[in-house]
């Protein structure tokens, strides 16, 4: 089985990394972080996948997918949300203080 899902999720992580390092705008950086987060979550789920198996709800028979990654991802997603919420509120704060979201201007102004 070719691991498209693995490669896909790692690609997401790499893209997220690229965005964080290359992009100027603060919101884009935060989105980059979020993309990395979703990439990892996708990776977790694809690790737990079993070929032609259904969701682990007992009332449906047949082989089940590995439930643990799903439980973990549930937590990871909520953590991702909280970090994004905080990051965005900090970005709002920075915007209020410096009037811009461009990183160079913020740092330039600060120096």
């Amino acid at each position: 089985m070719i691991q498209y899902y693995y490669l896909g999720s790692i690609a997401l992580i790499a893209i997220g990394m690229y965005i964080v390092i290359a992009k100027r705008n603060l919101i884009k950086i935060i989105l980059g972080l979020d993309i990395m987060d979703t990439g990892v979550n996708l990776l977790f789920i694809s690790i737990g996948y079993v070929k032609n198996a259904t969701a682990p709800i007992e009332n449906v028979p047949g082989p089940y997918v590995d439930p643990i990654p799903q439980a973990l991802v549930l937590t990871a997603i909520v953590i991702g949300v909280s970090v994004m919420a905080l990051a965005l509120s900090i970005a709002i704060g920075i915007y209020k203080k410096t009037g811009t979201l461009e990183l160079d201007e913020i740092l330039g102004v600060k120096k």
């Binding site: 992580i13 997220g16 990394m17 964080v20 950086i29 972080l33 990395m36 987060d37 990892v40 953590i79 970090v83 905080l86 990051a87 900090i90």
Partner: peptide
């Protein structure tokens, strides 16, 4: 801290 911290947690 957020940027570096969240990359770290990833």
């Amino acid at each position: 801290y957020v940027i570096i911290g969240s990359i770290g947690s990833t």
